[in-house]
Simulated scan of single mutants.
Amino acid sequence: MEKLLSILDSIGIPYAYDHFAEGESPEPPFLCYLLPGSDNFSADGKVYHKISEVRLELYTDYKDLASEQKVEDTLDAAGLFYNKTETWIDSEKLYEVLYSFDMEGM
């Protein structure tokens, strides 16, 4: 978990786990991260190697290539392989760029 928090700190964009408390959300851009599952390696009924699924959500009020580049440069520097998708959330009037990746040892 420390490695993930260090990565998030180095991006330089405000972040929270899952969501910000109501009324405490910063102005975009901001990040939310989730740990929705795992893909652990096991044998003999024991976990030998922990691997957590990470979802990192970048929220912006316009297509913000500079913020996307900050996130991607930081993930690249950390040696993480990620997939990226994007969607417009009409009810929030925000773009969400989702980065999905696995991290070991969490």
Rank of each mutant, 00 (worst) to 15 (best):
M1D: 06
E2K: 14
K3A: 11
K3E: 07
L4A: 01
L5Q: 12
L5V: 11
L5D: 10
I7N: 03
L8T: 05
L8C: 04
S10G: 05
I11E: 01
I11Y: 00
G12M: 06
G12N: 04
G12K: 04
P14V: 08
P14H: 06
Y15P: 01
Y15C: 09
Y15R: 04
A16V: 08
A16E: 04
D18F: 04
H19E: 14
F20C: 03
E22F: 13
E22P: 15
E22Q: 11
E22V: 13
G23W: 03
G23E: 00
E24I: 13
S25L: 07
P26Q: 08
P28C: 11
P28K: 02
P28S: 09
F30V: 11
L31D: 04
L31N: 02
C32L: 15
C32P: 07
C32A: 14
Y33K: 02
L35G: 07
L35S: 12
P36Q: 05
P36K: 05
G37F: 03
G37L: 01
G37Q: 00
S38P: 10
S38M: 12
S38D: 13
D39Y: 12
D39T: 15
D39M: 10
D39I: 10
D39E: 11
F41V: 14
F41T: 15
S42P: 05
A43L: 13
A43T: 15
A43R: 15
A43K: 12
D44Y: 12
D44K: 10
G45F: 05
K46T: 15
K46Y: 11
K46W: 09
Y48Q: 12
Y48T: 13
Y48S: 11
S52M: 03
L56D: 02
L56T: 06
L56W: 07
E57H: 12
E57Y: 09
E57W: 07
E57I: 13
L58R: 02
Y59S: 02
Y59E: 02
Y59C: 01
T60S: 14
D61I: 06
K63H: 15
D64C: 03
D64A: 03
A66W: 10
S67D: 02
E68D: 13
E68H: 08
E72M: 09
D73R: 06
T74Q: 09
L75N: 05
D76Y: 07
A77C: 09
A77F: 10
A78E: 03
A78F: 09
G79T: 10
L80Q: 05
F81T: 15
Y82A: 02
Y82P: 00
Y82G: 01
N83G: 15
K84P: 04
T85Y: 08
E86Q: 08
E86W: 07
T87N: 14
T87H: 05
W88Y: 10
W88H: 08
I89H: 08
I89N: 06
D90F: 06
D90L: 05
D90A: 12
S91W: 09
S91R: 08
E92L: 15
K93W: 14
L94W: 00
Y95P: 02
Y95I: 13
E96L: 08
E96I: 12
E96Q: 08
E96P: 06
V97Q: 00
V97L: 01
V97D: 00
V97W: 00
L98T: 09
L98R: 03
L98G: 01
L98F: 07
Y99K: 00
Y99M: 03
Y99N: 00
S100N: 12
F101M: 02
M103L: 11
G105C: 08
G105S: 15
M106P: 02
M106H: 05
